[in-house]
Design a protein around this nucleic acid. Structure first.
Lengths: 348, 348
DNA sequence: CTGAAAGCGCTTACAG
DNA sequence: CTGAAAGCGCTTACAG
């Protein structure tokens, strides 16, 4: 007893052997009792639990996992733009990160999070180093070196899932982008806009953008309208892309009375440029973005947007990385919904 | 050789024994060679590395850490408001999270991240369960149950550091709030505003708010002006607090021509209320917030704010949790700077 | 239902 | 400079 006290004061680790001695049982019984093994009497289990509490004992997960050959941990990699600071990361990915961590926790997994930017630092070998049972990769598509690295890594039989991957050969989970494009465009048409232009990118690595464009096209065509695409210059940062696109349309005297924009960051830039040009939103120009980022709440008018169900997104990513068999397309498509705020005029 | 290939195809773990056999050395030599022990000849090391690469071997960190008695991992806990979804979390904490992960990585530590909301789920016993060498706790001060839990846990000799803790008896790292209040208020005074009111909270659990208020008071007094405080109703969410505060001032016919607000979320609500009331920012009312959140970039006008140096904040939190000795106050105060955007009129 | 023993994959005294 | 062996703290066949 005295010895135990001394050790705990020195912060020496309390082990299952200490608990065994205290409870007067064997070490294996301690292990089984605490693991809720049905082989143990409730009477014994109660005694063990009491001793464990008395000594402040907790199972060492490292040791347990080493023995069990699993980690109970999922790696979450957030790919950043080169040179990007933590507070410049697209908030969409932060929301996704939060959802993934919550979903993993609900499935009894810890999350090992890393923000990866440059090639010296890329790391995805979590399984062979015994750090995680799989990896979920999210983040910008604008970091080619990172995607090359993870794409190549993913070739082996690794448990890895990607959000919005630019490559279809990777295991992906994505928003239902087509549906989102459809909903947004129908909304604009329903509100009476007719010269609706899509601001986005079709040949960019961002595959999701093409899907959004296709949804837009379908909605335009079903209404007998002609789809018009303005490709954004994806070298610039997102907001500048929005600024430039609007500036360009005005310079070339393009007629438009509404914009469906491939993502909120671009839409925010577009909205600013519209304001600077004295074009009022939503009266002279309707505007719908994509992603539902929080900053869209604070613009004037607030930005109407398409938002994926973040909770489902997190759950699907976790399910995908944990599943042995591949997932069906339906299990990898995150449903979206229209976030009605203020950048579309009332119908009629 | 054949045997090795078969095993790797089955994804059986490649161990240091396999590498030893392949390289014709003992297992301990493999371990030393890969750990860059100076006891090993470069010739031997090269041979071991070659074999390791050939077999796709990586050190199992779980096993290594178990043996070494350390984890090389830091836990990062983000406390959320009860019922708050991942995309409602104050973006300030996401930025801080990113900075902490980056700083930890720079110090050779992994980060185990968890978002904690409700009491069934609170967990901070990372050290005794062998999951981390310490914990960094950030997030809302509005979750009393969470802070009670961590405060009590922190009583024992645990490595735990808190961002902006409501309690001074906990190990904390904070923005230089006093300095921030000083800078912001001087800026407003310099721009010619005179009826400057502070929107904040002095008795709230958010200790940092009091410090900001004190900086404000000092700047007012040095200019011969009378500080005026409007306490925000901290039951409501932040933006509503801002709305309500402005509404109340107008209702009571309070005179004001500028507002220094204790945080950006509140300031964003205040800005909206001002717009709805037809009070133009920055002409009729100057406005400065605190935190530098990204959404402030997109309002019109963009919100001038005080921003902590996020990189330093992450580094200080990591240094604090890793340091054996306590840190001096200077080592726990994150420098701040004025983010000049558009909600203060030009001086003169 | 419980215990003695092996072993997960490493690092690190201890020898030589 | 390298090797044989112990041990980090568990879980889990194997016995009884």
């Amino acid at each position: 007893m005295t010895e135990v006290k001394t050790r705990s004061r020195l912060r020496a680790r309390v082990t299952s052997f200490d608990v065994a001695e205290h409870a007067g049982v064997s070490q294996s019984t301690v292990s089984r009792a605490l693991a809720n093994s049905s082989a143990i009497t409730e009477v014994t289990r109660a005694r063990v639990i009491k001793s464990a509490e008395a000594l402040g004992y907790m199972v060492d997960t490292r040791a347990a996992q080493l023995r069990q050959g699993r980690t109970g941990t999922l790696a979450v990699v957030v790919i950043c733009r080169p040179g990007e600071a933590a507070n410049d990361i697209n908030p969409f990915y932060f929301s996704l990160l939060g959802s993934v961590c919550a979903a993993a926790s609900a499935q009894g997994h810890q999350t090992l999070v890393s923000f990866q930017t440059s090639s010296e630092q890329f790391f995805g070998k979590y399984e062979e180093s015994g750090q995680a049972d799989g990896a979920i990769v999210i983040g910008t598509t604008a970091n080619d070196a990172a995607w090359d690295y993870f794409r190549q890594l993913s070739g082996d039989e690794r448990s890895m899932v990607f959000w919005g991957s630019p490559f279809d050969d990777l295991e992906w989970v994505r928003s239902d982008n087509y549906e989102g494009g459809l909903i947004a465009t129908r909304k604009l048409i329903g509100a009476g806009y007719r010269n609706i232009v899509h601001l986005g990118a079709v040949d960019s690595p961002q595959r999701q953008f093409r899907e959004r464009y296709e949804g837009y096209c379908a909605a335009m065509e079903e209404a007998g309208l002609v789809p018009r695409l303005l490709q954004v210059d994806y070298e610039a940062d997102r907001e500048t892309q929005g600024h430039n696109a609007v500036a360009q349309m005005i310079a070339t005297e393009e007629r438009f009375d509404a914009l469906f924009v491939a993502c909120d960051s671009i839409a925010l830039g577009a909205m600013e440029e519209l304001r600077e040009r004295g074009i009022s939103v939503p009266d002279q120009c309707g505007l719908i973005g994509f992603d539902g980022i929080r900053a869209g709440t604070h613009t004037s008018p607030p930005l109407t947007s398409i938002e994926p169900d973040f909770e489902v997104a997190g759950a699907m990513l976790v399910a995908a990385v944990l599943s042995e068999a591949g997932l069906s397309a339906a299990e990898r498509r995150v449903p979206v919904r229209l976030l009605e705020r203020g950048s579309v005029r009332r119908s009629g």
